[in-house]
């Protein structure tokens, strides 16, 4: 496969994943909820792309998935892009070098970023009240987030497991190599470097 063909393959595959994940996320019926929470597919996609394919991919996929999130359900434009971009970058930069890539730690990352994402939203709601004269106590916001978190983590993990395999086997790279590694470099246990 030429470099040009590989590039277009990446673009097309990523575009497909982003479109499917974001559209499914806003269309799934309530019956798909797990413990009251539906999977946050765009967050899971950004985290996994950063973890499996590197910082550049995490950044770009985070931005693109965040844009779709803003477009489909956001109160403003840009917030979803900002949050998912950092999720994509952080999942690659902070953790993959320590944990090395394997499915289990991919799932740990998804759980970690689900919690981190919830914490950021709590902080945002506290700092930017939805109505000027209505301020929610931080304790109340944290308690609400704590109650919702187990269901959200479970739902996201349930979505992450098939998505990991899909990205590995039907992903943007022919042999699921990562964008920030030179050809032939094999890191970690190379779980998804399937020939």
């Amino acid at each position: 496969m030429t470099a040009r063909a590989a590039f277009w393959r990446r673009i097309l595959v990523y575009a497909l994943y982003i479109a499917v994940c974001s559209l499914l996320q806003v269309t799934l019926p309530d019956s798909a909820a797990l413990l009251g929470a539906s999977p946050d597919l765009t967050l899971v996609l950004a985290v996994l792309c950063g973890y499996m394919f590197g910082t550049g991919d995490g950044l770009v996929i985070g931005l693109a998935a965040g844009f779709m999130r803003d477009l489909l359900a956001g109160r403003t434009l840009g917030l979803g892009m900002l949050l998912l971009m950092y999720a994509g970058i952080a999942s690659s930069v902070l953790l993959h070098r320590f944990f090395r890539r394997n499915i289990l730690f991919g799932l740990v990352l998804v759980a970690f970023f689900t919690a981190a994402y919830a914490a950021v939203l709590v902080l945002l709601t506290y700092l930017v009240p939805p109505l000027p004269d209505v301020v929610y106590p931080i304790g109340e916001l944290l308690e609400r987030a704590r109650q919702a978190l187990p269901g959200q983590v479970l739902a996201n993990l349930a979505a992450a497991l098939p998505l990991i395999f899909l990205l590995a086997l039907l992903g943007p790279y022919r042999r699921s190599g990562r964008g920030d590694e030179p050809d032939g470099t094999i890191m970690g246990d190379s779980l998804w470097r399937v020939a």
């Binding site: 539906s38 946050d40 359900a73 109160r75």
Partner: peptide
Amino acid sequence: VLTREIGQWFDVFR
């Protein structure tokens, strides 16, 4: 109605 909400801060519908 085209979409449903997907969580806090992303909770409007199209």
